[in-house]
Computed example of a mutant assay.
Amino acid sequence: MMLREDEDSLVCDFAETYHILDFRSLPAKLAATLAAGLSDNSRIKRHFSGMACTTETLLLALIADVQNLSLWSKSKPGSPKPESLADKFLGNLGKEADTVSVTAEEFDRIRQELLKGGEQNG
Rank of each mutant, 00 (worst) to 15 (best):
G117I: 12
L93W: 11
E56F: 06
R4N: 14
K45A: 04
D108R: 07
L62W: 03
E7G: 10
T17C: 05
T57F: 05
A32I: 00
T103S: 15
A36I: 04
G122T: 05
T17Q: 08
E106T: 13
G94N: 06
R46P: 15
R43T: 02
F14I: 02
R111V: 04
L114I: 13
T99S: 03
H19G: 09
S73C: 05
L38M: 14
Y18A: 00
F23L: 10
Q120P: 04
F23T: 00
R46G: 15
K81P: 05
W72H: 02
H19T: 07
S79Y: 01
N41H: 12
A61T: 01
T99F: 02
S75I: 03
L10P: 02
L30I: 10
R46F: 14
A32S: 14
E7R: 15
L34I: 00
L71T: 11
F107H: 12
F14G: 02
Q112E: 14
E106I: 05
F23Q: 05
S39L: 03
T99C: 01
T17M: 03
L59Y: 07
L69M: 11
F14E: 05
G78I: 10
E5S: 13
D87E: 08
N68T: 04
A61K: 02
V11F: 08
Q67A: 12
K116W: 03
T54Q: 14
S70W: 07
